[in-house]
């Protein structure tokens, strides 16, 4: 896979657009079982990312991803800033400039491990890992763009009946059950935006 400057900019705009468009929905989800800032946080972060365009897209893919990660860490705050930021930074560190599918699988795995370490968390605790981990499994198993996008949406849905063990929702105990995890929803939005853009690139 090779992404030229235009494609990289298109990717960044798609990621940012997905989050910014759904900011209100993310905030509403966080109001139910968190503190009602997830949409505001992610929006602030991705607006800062957008503000770094077009320069950001001049960088090679790994550098660009690291820069996105660092921007998110320094702009988002809250739990999602270090976690989503770390994910992008580690992805950037692990990916070569023109990654193969195997490279993508390995880099995503490394980024997920870094998120787990930063969050002292695992899949099954009603966090964005409950989207990242199953989506990674589809990717590693050879699933196509469509399969990945479907899994991202379904995995976020599957957090609804879960009991939160990590994140603010865990303070609610049983009352966390019955609400979708906001971080899972934003992860799912980012993944859908990414695969759509990348599929478009690969097919054209």
């Amino acid at each position: 896979m090779s992404l030229d400057r235009v494609a990289r900019e298109r990717l960044v705009r798609a990621l940012a657009g997905a989050v910014i468009e759904h900011a209100d929905e993310l905030t509403s989800l966080d109001q139910a079982i968190g503190d009602g800032d997830h949409g505001l946080n992610m929006k602030r972060g991705f607006e800062a990312v957008l503000a770094a365009l077009p320069g950001l897209a001049d960088k090679p893919l790994p550098e660009m991803l690291k820069a996105i990660g660092m921007t998110l860490v320094m702009k988002v705050g809250g739990a999602s800033g270090p976690l989503v930021g770390t994910f992008f930074m580690e992805l950037g560190k692990a990916l070569p400039e023109q990654p193969s599918r195997a490279d993508l699988v390995a880099a995503t795995e490394r980024a997920i491990e870094a998120v787990k370490a930063r969050g002292r968390s695992e899949a099954g605790q009603k966090t964005l890992l409950d989207v990242l981990v199953p989506v990674h499994a589809i990717l590693a198993g050879g699933g196509d763009a469509k399969a990945i996008a479907i899994e991202a949406v379904q995995a976020a849905d599957r957090t609804t009946p879960m009991l939160a063990i990590r994140g603010r929702a865990s303070f609610l105990g049983e009352r966390s059950i019955g609400h979708m995890d906001p971080g899972s929803r934003s992860a799912s939005l980012l993944i859908s935006a990414a695969v759509e853009t990348l599929e478009f690139e690969v097919n054209t």
Binding site: G36, D37, L40, V73, V76, G77, G81
Partner: peptide
Amino acid sequence: PGQVFTSPTPD
């Protein structure tokens, strides 16, 4: 001081 109800950032 972070944003309202949001942890400040490392910088």
